[in-house]
Design a protein around this nucleic acid. Structure first.
Lengths: 259, 259
DNA sequence: CGAGGGGTTGATCTCCTTCAACGGAGGTGG
DNA sequence: CCACCTCCGTTGAAGGAGATCAACCCCTCG
């Protein structure tokens, strides 16, 4: 199955915050899953359904959306390749959100059943899944802070800092330069602004030689300045610091004995 | 130990979204934990530390805060009695957030070690913990939508809808009438507004006989109207609908045999 | 009695929205 | 190959929602 390669990206993500044993890793990679393609602006997971599979981003960009009655929409999370963007649906199969392809996107659908089976069989994996959901939540919390208490410039700057950081982490470009094929309207959906104001804000950042974002490419000209403007601190991403090896090893040690 | 009674509230919360077996329930209630009291505005969990215990709210109100460099602050989550407000710290012991008592609050500190042990021993509990974190994240996502795309009136209305709903659920008042000893400044911290504007917004809601909030008491005079203004839909709270019994029972069935 | 915290009010300012128009790039069909 | 259309970025002008600043009131508490 071709999907092995793509599952590896997810495994790598988990392994970044949770140490996985070889056995756990192998079990992860053996999950069977269904590949699918989506054009930009297509719903990958519609709202208000009950789903029986989670969705792993292989290529492209996907957004989790909160939709208002009047048609306004807000991106609540941005998902890059390797993200299992609704891993939480395993424990919460009724969707109150919707996941939409923001660019042409290819995904793998992974049955909940498989993920549940792994979580029961391997407590270390259950912890890793839980931790992944917690990491996701930490990003959500940070976005609340940004939307609630920062102006347009800081919000846009923060989005670019975060995305640059994550892109570098998964090996898609560097934090100074990476592809980001989003329209200004999509950036607006993510920052709680209008497309017009995102435009003006980007111009401001461009004029001060801080950030240039043109033809789907982000070039961060002055990283320190951007971080300063955004009040960005990568800690919340929980990408390297949050390992909890003492528990992971004890989990493994206890597995053959205790359970 | 006095704490049994208080742990029961948390168990009830879990049981609301995850079916627990008697054995799991008993194990939960047997956790040992340390009671503590906090005055309003005291940090229960400071930011930028590594913690080895989670924090269960027994009485009072606590807020999770995101703090900006310049001193601005944003509440990212509001925690009511029965909430284990940083359950996610079990898998993510480094705090990027801070938890502060918003009123006089009594809490129980529960060692991560105990929670981890339970999660390993009982996959059903591990799932319940994971689901609790997911439910928490769903609220965070909804708040992002509110902050990003709704005006002051809708934000305030939504906060009251959500809180009324949750209060009723845990048996502290009804959705029409409940105690909420928060200042307008604290409401402002939660809605991304200023205290002055919260004041004017509340006046507007009071004048239209929708909501009255005075001397620490919320009276929702017109629930339907408030829901309409807030664009509130309780689905995201995942309080009754998200049970996943098919898995829970299979987990239990497999426990004695499989693991 | 004085101090301080919280609610209320008014005046002013500003950031962002809204609306509208235009231009360029890319795609399509005659 | 050009006409046309659509999408996206850009610009300008006007309006509005909410912030900011400052004052005042009331209540509680030392």
């Amino acid at each position: 199955m071709i999907s092995n390669n793509s599952l590896a990206r997810f495994a790598a993500r988990l392994n970044r915050h949770s140490l996985l044993s070889n056995e756990e890793l192998q079990a992860l990679l053996k999950m069977c899953c269904l590949p699918a393609q989506f054009q930009a602006r297509r719903d990958i997971v519609p709202t208000n359904k009950t789903v029986d599979h989670a969705c792993l981003i292989v290529e492209g960009l996907a957004g989790r959306f909160d939709l208002m009655r009047d048609g306004r929409r807000q991106v609540t999370a941005l998902h890059l390749p390797g993200d299992m963007c609704d891993l939480h649906s395993v424990v919460q199969p009724h969707t109150a959100w919707s996941i939409t392809a923001m660019t042409a996107t290819s995904v793998l659908f992974v049955p909940h059943e498989d993920l549940q089976r792994l979580a029961i069989r391997y407590p270390g994996l259950a912890m890793a899944f839980w931790r992944d959901t917690a990491a996701d939540a930490a990003v959500l919390a940070k976005w609340i802070g940004n939307l609630g208490r920062k102006d347009a410039r800081a919000r846009v700057a923060h989005l670019f800092c975060e995305t640059a950081f994550r892109m570098e982490l998964i090996g898609l470009g560097t934090r100074r330069s990476f592809d980001l094929p989003l329209t200004q309207e999509q950036l607006a959906d993510a920052t709680g602004l209008t497309a017009v104001h995102v435009n003006r804000t980007l111009q401001g950042l461009r004029e001060t030689r801080t950030l240039s974002f043109q033809s789907s490419r982000a070039e961060i000209l002055d990283w320190d300045r951007l971080v300063e403007i955004a009040d960005f601190d990568s800690d919340y991403l929980m990408l390297q610091a949050s390992r909890n090896p003492s528990f992971e090893t004890s989990a493994r040690a206890e597995l053959p004995v205790g359970a």
